[in-house]
């Protein structure tokens, strides 16, 4: 059996008095997309921020990448391990150029820290024509992203995650503030993640977006894993019923979907 791309064991996270996550076990395997569902405050964001190294879990929790335990995970460490995240639209620096956004936090530089702007521009130009569908010469790597549409900006955020050879792509409500056709593009992109042998985690409030493109669904409620299904075992209608039930009772009576 292949090792999961990422495995969280017994993860808890408290912020002061508030327990945001409690003893969560969670894993994602190569070639699958996991949908993470749950109400506001269920702990979805905290969970992914632990995987991306932004938050450190409380003592006792363990994080494994490809079966190897990782201590003191930080954002740069997680990115080096192949974790890439597409945040909501506001994740770009508006007044900065496209290339500065693409290479945010991971600028190409020499040992003294001087930037290789020529290369970053060239890579950005190539990504823009090949992956983002910019054809006009007027939009170039130096264009500030503020002047672009919501879809163009989300394209930048997704391309940013893809370019760096991601092993695990996390999408945190990537369809917020997008038009219908732009949302379509994002969902197509997510559906393609498993074909490339990579792993994905997809967070969204909209179950109709999540259900079609994922292989497995994990439901969080008040910091705990309330349930887990393989998509093959549950229809969309059943899933919706059960989510209502979770919202009311915090529990999911259903059969715990088989682990992969």
């Amino acid at each position: 059996m292949t090792e999961p791309t990422v495995r969280l064991v017994n993860i808890s996270k408290s912020f002061g008095e508030v327990k945001s996550l409690e003893n969560v076990n969670f894993e994602v395997y190569p070639g699958e997309v996991v949908g993470l569902l749950g109400d506001n405050g269920a702990g979805k964001s905290t969970l992914i921020k632990i995987i991306t190294g932004y938050h450190q879990p409380d003592p006792g929790g363990e994080i494994y990448f490809h079966g190897k335990k990782v201590e003191n995970l930080t954002v740069p460490k997680a990115r080096a391990l192949g974790v890439e995240t597409v945040y909501q639209e506001k994740a770009l620096a508006d007044d900065q150029s496209v290339w500065r956004n693409i290479f945010m936090g991971r600028e190409i530089a020499n040992r003294l820290g001087f930037l290789d702007i020529k290369q970053m521009r060239a890579v950005t130009q190539r990504l823009m024509t090949e992956h983002m569908g910019f054809t006009s010469k007027a939009v170039n790597p130096d264009t500030p992203v503020r002047t672009m549409s919501g879809g163009e900006r989300q394209g930048i955020a997704i391309t940013r995650a893809l370019y760096f050879e991601a092993e695990l792509i996390i999408l945190d409500e990537p369809t917020m503030a997008l038009s219908l056709s732009e949302t379509r593009k994002v969902l197509d992109f997510i559906a393609n993640i498993p074909k490339a042998g990579k792993a994905g985690i997809f967070i969204d409030h909209n179950i109709f977006h999540v259900y079609p493109v994922v292989d497995r669904i994990v439901v969080l409620d008040r910091g705990r894993v309330a349930g887990e299904f393989r998509k093959a075992d549950v229809s969309l209608e059943e899933l919706i019923d059960r989510l209502y039930q979770v919202a009311r009772t915090g529990r999911l009576e259903a059969a715990r979907g088989g682990k992969a």
């Binding site: 954002v75 994740a91 945010m104 600028e107």
Partner: peptide, 24 residues
């Protein structure tokens, strides 16, 4: 304009939350 520090200065002032999430 030509150093990583400058890139991080602009990103910090523009969108500190995002910069943090992206490892700055």
């Amino acid at each position: 304009n030509r150093h990583r520090l400058g890139a991080h200065i602009y990103l910090t002032g523009d969108n500190a939350d995002s910069a943090r999430l992206m490892g700055v």
